[in-house]
Amino acid sequence: MSHIPLQHVLIFSTALFFIGMFGMFTRRNLITLLMSVELMLNSVNINLAAFNKYLYPQQTGGLFLALFIIIIAAAEAAIAIAIIINLYRSHHSIDVDDATEMKY
């Protein structure tokens, strides 16, 4: 385990984060957007776990923080899916470009 350097983990999590961001900007489907958000959250989790492991191996604060984020992400996914269902009922579409009434 210890032969993997910290930098590699960080590069991986950064890559994951920007993949999520790319998805956020390019995708129009709300489900995909939700998945992109999850990707970004998980990249943060990896960061937290990695820093905890490599810098302060005796402590567990980073891991617990990652756990909290996983729980919050679950709650957020539930709310997001509820919103998406409601949007589908009113617009018959889950494409973000079809829901642009809230402008001006």
């Binding site: 900007f25 957007l33 973000v96 470009d97 829901a99 642009t100 009434e101 809230m102 402008k103 001006y104």
Partner: peptide, 10 residues
């Protein structure tokens, strides 16, 4: 104020 989610994100 375009109403497009991704613009706000930007």
């Amino acid at each position: 104020q375009s109403g497009k989610l991704q613009d706000y994100l930007l």
